[in-house]
Amino acid sequence: MSVDKPSAHMSHKEVRQQIKLPFSKAVEISLRSIKIRFARSIITAAGIMLGIAFFASVRMSAEFSVIHEKIVHETVAAFQAGKLHHITEDQTRMISSATTDVKAAQQDALAARERLDWLSIMALIVCTVGITNAMLMSVTERYKEIGTMKCLGALDSFIVKLFFIESCLTGFISSVIGFLLGWFIISLVHIFTDGMLAFGAQYWKSSLTLFGLSVLIGTFLTFIATIAPAVRAAQMPPAAALRVEI
């Protein structure tokens, strides 16, 4: 068997050079995978989207209450300092509802914000469960494909790479749409109930921060929910992955 050693060594070297999956190819395959399974991808994405929409809407309501409080505070201060000469209808309504009993109003606002924080956490939990469920299913139904790819010479890391790109893309796109949905609806509702007063610089700043947060959370959760089952599937011996029937 002494003849075997050099040849094994040589193939070792060759291997490092030759088995590969270029990133551009991986992106191409992942994109195609999303596109072809479009109906399936839409359902998966809808789970993420609705979760993020719920989260964004709850957070946006909280932001509105913060902005309001700030406006009331500033208006009252300006009025007391005598800088403010005429008050719009919107401002009057806002201030009068806020100042009848300052202490009680403050306590109310605090309680409301606490409730909204709890709601946000609940929204995130619902979101996580939904995403995990969708992504777990989408990996499981592709065990056979994973086994086949390994038979064709794919390394475990190729499989993980493909799912990584796919999950990040799905997560990102769904989160953006989800955020826009939740944010738009809440903003629209706000216009009808409280007028345009809150839509200043502060509003856009909060919206942007919330946008970043929502997309980050959505993408990250999708990634986490996909990568664990994908790694497990990739590490299975191909024979076992091919045997799986669902």
């Binding site: 068997m1 075997d4 040849s7 094994a8 193939s11 070792h12 060759e14 291997v15 490092r16 030759q18 088995i19 390994k150 038979c151 064709l152 010479g153 794919a154 390394l155 475990d156 191909p238």
Partner: peptide, 15 residues
Amino acid sequence: VDMAQLDAQELAYLR
């Protein structure tokens, strides 16, 4: 070449 001696990369190369 004894297949049991191959690591994951070499096995993938073989496949």
